[in-house]
Nucleic acid binder design. Structure first.
Lengths: 115, 115
DNA sequence: CTCCATAGTTCATTTTATGAAACTATTGCA
DNA sequence: TGCAATAGTTTCATAAAATGAACTATGGAG
């Protein structure tokens, strides 16, 4: 169960997942290892700056690896680490929620309790 | 399993969970129904404006309810709806990840593949 | 008809995130 | 030597989000 101790504890995770493109980016890498240019095309219209910002952060946090291949033309591949793959259940839970709860975009039904 | 179709699908959920204080706020409400002032104290140093912004958004998205009690002094209680409670597995998955993966803040180990 | 307590709102400002455009770096081949 | 292809970086402008301080609203007790 969830209790108060979770509230501060999940902070490091929020730092990792924060930012406009982070979740779609991670989903792309869960689908399969990808190169910089491919990510850029798939996440269009992301800017290269934002993409590198995200990739660097995720790398620093140990969520993905960057592997550089020499050859012509030079290329680089990104893929999740084990820590990264371990995030999958979170995405699966999000996906499940969307499936079951997202169809109707309910609007707030305000209650007024009479005492 | 996760596939490409998830990537756009989770967008409505990201709109709900976005924002600096949203996740801690929801965790507070999962722990128990709370009043405005209590949330404000627990989430200190959140500003009252940010707090109302979040509460209004979550209410509009059908994640929490606002119940106003007349009496002296007037007070208001916030609690998760069923849709809101259904988010718990997501938090549980986050919590589990933190437990198992967050202890060491690994730094990026860059690979260079020689071909 | 004023005061207290709760729950906000308003608005100016600061901070942070995102974006667009142009530029750099690396490599091998022609 | 110079070009093509990949993968970035840099700089600057803009947009979005968060903050802080002061103010408003409500309602009953006294």
């Amino acid at each position: 169960m969830l209790d108060r101790s979770c509230i501060e504890a999940i902070d490091p995770l929020l730092e990792i997942l924060d930012g406009k493109w982070t979740l779609p980016l991670l989903l792309e890498l869960f689908v399969g290892t990808k190169r910089f240019g491919e990510l850029r095309r798939r996440l269009d219209p992301i800017s290269p700056k934002t993409l590198t910002d995200r990739l660097r952060l995720l790398e620093e946090k140990g969520i993905i690896t960057r592997t550089q291949y020499s050859g012509v033309p030079l290329h680089v591949e990104y893929e999740p680490t084990e820590r990264g793959w371990n995030l999958q259940p979170i995405f699966a839970a999000m996906w499940a929620w969307v499936q079951e709860n997202s169809l109707s975009d309910k609007h707030g039904t305000e209650k007024i309790a009479l005492t």
